[in-house]
Simulated assay, not measured.
Amino acid sequence: MKVIKHYLFVLILIISFISCSTDDNDNTSVISLDSSEYYQELNVSYGPDNDQRFDIYLPANRNFDTEVMILVHGGGWSAGDKTDMNGFRDFIRSEFPNMAIVNINYRLANPDNQPYPMQLNDITSVINYLKTNQNYYIIDDDFGFIGASAGAHLSLLWSYAFDTENNIDMVCSIVGPTNFTDPAYLNNTNPELQAMLDLYGIEATTEHLEEVSPYHRVTATAPPTILFYGALDPLVPTTQGTDMRDKLDVLGVTNEFTLYPNGGHGWTGLDLLDTSIKLKAFIETHFD
């Protein structure tokens, strides 16, 4: 009888221990930030490299429907920094105060490290990090992109070719290259431009150039896309925008396209105001 009581006692202890352990684990799994308060964190690490960092800005009173806009800087794939996108960060915070923002850095290319697929892999890592930590941040698991120049190219390419789970609701390209097989690129005489293109291979095959081109990777399932280009851009020919627009039209993908006759690789004044108005309306329609 004493033996039976002893085993019953031990069994009760074991059950109690398992119950307590399970409760502790459950509590740990649901730890999250206070969603009623504004939160920001700079230089969040999403990989071992020093460039694999992002800044995150979370609005107060957010929930699991809080959209997340990802900003991707330019710099010819070999330079630039997330701080270059602070103007877009401030625009989103002003016009969409209930939206979360993630402003990313990614590993920069050099002659020994090509941008593809390295930088696309970094964007994948960011997306996976945000989805894995969705319960911690209390955010939606759908995203939008605003990219500038090389960052616009990366945003388009990831949205068109790497978004296997349809997590991207919209993408904005501001002077983003779209087609590396464009004769305007293949036959260019601009040393600065050619040095950037050579990052994708000095003697790259047509197949490789198509693989890294949003124009050649886009399908009818692509997210709504808004495109802005400057007619006087020395680095991104007008055809990079017009051909992308035409391809989206053929595929039936929702898109908007604006070409500024006096714009270069960027613009100011009334053209910039026009960009802001159109981008805000596009976000409100397709993302907000």
Rank of each mutant, 00 (worst) to 15 (best):
K2G: 15
V3I: 14
I12C: 13
L13P: 03
S16P: 10
S16N: 11
F17L: 15
F17C: 03
I18L: 14
T28N: 12
D34L: 02
N43L: 07
G47F: 10
D49Q: 12
I56E: 12
L58Q: 09
A60N: 11
R62A: 00
E67M: 14
L71A: 05
S94E: 14
E95V: 08
P97K: 12
N98T: 12
N98M: 09
I104N: 03
N105L: 06
R107I: 04
R107Y: 06
A109H: 00
A109T: 04
D112S: 11
N113S: 06
P115Y: 12
Y116Q: 07
L120D: 01
N133R: 08
F143K: 05
G147W: 07
A152I: 03
H153C: 07
L154M: 12
S159R: 08
A161S: 15
F162W: 14
N166P: 06
I168L: 09
M170G: 09
V171Y: 00
C172I: 05
S173L: 05
I174A: 01
F180V: 01
A184L: 08
N187D: 08
P191V: 06
A195Y: 08
Y200Q: 02
T221R: 08
P224N: 06
T225E: 02
I226L: 08
P237Q: 08
G241T: 13
T242I: 05
D246Q: 10
L248P: 02
L251P: 05
V253E: 04
F257G: 09
N262G: 14
W267H: 10
L270C: 02
L273R: 15
L279N: 12
D288H: 10
